[in-house]
Computed example of a mutant assay.
Amino acid sequence: MVSEVNGRRWAYLKRKGFDRGAVLLAATGLILIGSRYGSAYIQDLGLNLGADLLGVLAVLYAIRPFLNRAEARRESVLERFDHKDFITRADDAQRRIEILDSWMALLQGGYQRPFLTSLREALERNVEIRMLLLDPDARAAEQRSDDLLRRTNVVENIMGNLSSLHDFRQGLPENMRHNLDIRVYSTLPPVQMYRADDHMVVSFYPVNMTSSNATQYQTSPQSQLGTFVGSKFEELWDAHSTRSLGQYREIVIKVSPDEAEQLYRTQFVTVERSIYISGHRIAQDHVEHGVAGLPVRVEQSSAKGEIEAANSYLFHTVSPASERYLIVRDLFRAKYGHNRHEVLLQLVEA
Results as ranks from 00 to 15, higher is better:
residue 40 A to H: 09
residue 122 A to Q: 02
residue 162 L to E: 00
residue 185 Y to I: 01
residue 121 E to I: 14
residue 201 V to W: 07
residue 66 F to V: 04
residue 349 E to R: 13
residue 205 Y to P: 03
residue 177 R to H: 08
residue 287 V to Q: 13
residue 345 L to Y: 00
residue 98 E to L: 12
residue 332 F to M: 13
residue 162 L to G: 01
residue 169 R to N: 09
residue 270 T to D: 03
residue 248 Y to G: 04
residue 68 N to E: 15
residue 46 G to M: 03
residue 178 H to N: 13
residue 84 K to Q: 11
residue 106 L to S: 10
residue 90 A to C: 14
residue 171 G to F: 13
residue 87 I to N: 02
residue 228 F to Y: 15
residue 49 L to G: 03
residue 237 W to T: 01
residue 137 D to I: 00
residue 151 R to D: 11
residue 153 N to T: 06
residue 58 A to T: 07
residue 285 D to C: 11
residue 203 S to D: 11
residue 54 L to Q: 08
residue 175 N to Y: 12
residue 194 Y to T: 05
residue 84 K to H: 11
residue 116 L to F: 07
residue 15 R to T: 12
residue 346 Q to I: 12
residue 3 S to R: 06
residue 291 V to G: 05
residue 135 D to H: 00
residue 325 Y to K: 04
residue 195 R to P: 01
residue 82 D to P: 00
residue 167 D to R: 15
residue 273 R to H: 14
residue 196 A to S: 10
residue 243 R to W: 01
residue 220 S to L: 07
residue 89 R to D: 12
residue 316 H to S: 15
residue 2 V to G: 07
residue 54 L to Y: 06
residue 260 A to Y: 09
residue 151 R to H: 10
residue 73 R to L: 07
residue 241 S to C: 04
residue 185 Y to F: 11
residue 202 V to W: 08
residue 248 Y to A: 02
residue 64 R to N: 14
